[in-house]
Design a protein around this nucleic acid. Structure first.
Lengths: 214, 214, 214, 214
DNA sequence: TATGAATGAGAATTCATTCAT
DNA sequence: GATGAATGAATTCTCATTCAT
């Protein structure tokens, strides 16, 4: 996926695309500006017209992820479940979003890989990640959670953050496991496994004791 | 936690410990052999007596994690829930392990951070990670899952891998969220939140429709 | 002080002024054409319409100093002491010139700093400096010296060059010391110190032995 | 002249010598570490084992000038006039020191050129220059001046700083003029000119009015 | 004529690795 | 075995200069 943007020049887009590809491939420190330049088809010096330092490229990716990707993906995606489709069924909502957004998720995966890795090491990256993406997503999900609770579809005993994290956690590990360890394991049928994952999210893995409504 | 070992010289241990500390702090590429040497209190050249290249240090950490750490932590730890403590209560089991192993988890966290990061980028690291740790853990959990299913405590409709991943995913994100984004958020009470997380794992976040026993 | 000129376009003047400011601040090598352009309020490319290379800017400054500044400052300034004011008193002459020309000296100081610095390293700059300024000043001072000697006010045993250099040397170090090391030292009263400097120039620092009229 | 030193390795000396040569030739900014390395016969990386940054090379030169050169040259040289030789004759003292130290002065000239140039642009260099050299020289000269005044050989009306500066200024310009502009001018006989310079320093360039003892 | 994006050569600096001691 | 000085390739970044618009 190329990076779409509004106020971004052709060159800047090419550089950002190349940077995402190379950094996602090798990690930030191991990626060299010379390789990014080569991949982008520009001179190395050109990179530094658009990004003052190498670290600014990383920030650029983050900002981009936040502005251009996260907004439609997270906010609009979640809102779609909530308002537009008027669904009351979480399962259908998740599947709908996943199907709908699969291409985007695949495209975003390299960016996410970069951001997650670097967030582990740098407080400032974490801050941007939080401000631009996490806090926004939490916000949207809290609203969603509230409505679902009101409709009697989600447990009010579990906070929105915990609930949202459970969805995210299960889906992320589902994808990571399949994408990174796919070659090593015998993969189950995609839809069948996804159904199980959603089951786990919605109803848990334990069999409730009789009379145990929690 | 220091690295204990059998067939490892005093020097090699010191180097490995230092490497774990430094690489966990900065990431593999950004960590320099000179800093590892300084931290280990040996000469830079000495490192290359024990590890032919810098990458071999990484392999050393992995091997070490696999051989020395993973076995007691994963296998023995999981088995402890399963057999030794003879628990039938997943909630109690999880809490027990978390309490019991907290110190170990803290100690292992730097290593895990390294391995997880590098596994994202290198197939070979992933392979080692899978062979040494994941496949072993899956194995043990499958056995556990089977018993739990037989005892009517876990759903047989959800595969062991999916169930185990759900536990892992929720707990990992719980810790990551608190540890990495702690400064940015208003943290809930630890025990209260953990209880919610376990609830989510065990019984899901959705309210089952009437008559919906899934 | 702005650079006045005849056959110089508005733009060229602005560039030259900016170049003098920037180069005087950082030195020639450390000054970048981009900063000069920014300071001049023109595009970087524009500079190279007026000056083929960066070094040509330096030459431009020199030429300018020679043509436009040196003539009125040096020649006219010195002649003023000599002929116009008709002074026979060196002390009064020096003080008069200093007072009179202080603003000009301040304005010229940046240019001088550039030229002096570069003259230390480049023979060709030195040649221009000599041809345009030094030789002219020596010429004028020789004439002055001759008159003073004839009037019995200056020693004929000391050549004009040595005498002129003594004036220049003492005054330059007086200014340099105060301007560059001012913050580090406890400065004497300006006028009192200047009087001492002129005393030193005129009558030396030693007490003449009895009967020693030299 | 090679840089002599006590606690300096062979390599460090070679690098410092090369740095002095190259920087004195081209100026600090225009001198590249690669050329210094080539001239020193070491790898470029080696330079940075001894000097953390390029600027530290400059500081190294300064420190060196201060410790190794200035001490014997300035302090010991001045003291020689003062105490050892027991001279009461400033002229003889100056000539003695100049003769004696000529080789050193020639050797020190490149270093001085560097230091003077950079001191014009950098406050921190100025500070080191002041602390290490100027303040020491002023100190020694003040003592000398005091004794000369007591002996009736120097004027008490002219402060030590002004007097010292006059000596320095005249001698420096004498050397600079000859060394830098030598090719362009018809040089006077060295000894004859030096005598005139000393005359100017000691007794000034003006003919004292009758009864004017100042 | 003026612009400023693009260039690429070259700058300072780092660092894994080697090797003589 | 252990050291750490030395290396030089590679890295990030700067900047004078060019050229299409």
């Amino acid at each position: 996926m190329q990076v779409p943007d509004l106020k971004m020049s052709e060159k800047e887009k090419k550089i950002l695309d190349a940077a995402i590809a190379v950094i996602s491939e090798k990690g930030f420190s191991a990626a060299s500006t010379s390789e990014i330049a080569r991949q982008a088809g520009v001179a190395e010096g050109t990179i530094f017209r658009y990004f003052k330092t190498k670290k600014d490229i990383l920030r650029g990716i983050l900002i981009h992820l936040g502005n251009v990707i996260a907004e439609p993906l997270v906010v609009y995606g979640l809102k779609k479940i909530l308002y537009q489709d008027g669904r009351e069924d979480l399962r259908a909502g998740i599947k709908l979003v996943l199907k709908d957004r699969m291409a985007i998720i695949d495209a975003v995966f390299p960016m996410l890989r970069i951001v997650i890795t670097e967030a582990m090491y740098h407080e400032d990256i974490r801050q941007i990640l939080y401000d631009k993406i996490i806090s926004r997503a939490v916000e949207v999900f809290e609203e969603y959670h509230l409505e679902m609770v009101e409709k009697g579809l989600m447990k009010k005993e579990i906070d929105a953050v915990v609930a949202g994290r459970s969805i995210l956690a299960n889906l992320v590990l589902f994808f990571v496991y399949r994408n990174l360890f796919g070659p090593m394991i015998q993969l189950d049928d995609y839809d069948r496994e996804l159904d199980q994952v959603i089951d786990a999210i919605m109803h848990g893995i334990a069999i409730p004791a009789v009379g145990d409504k929690k």
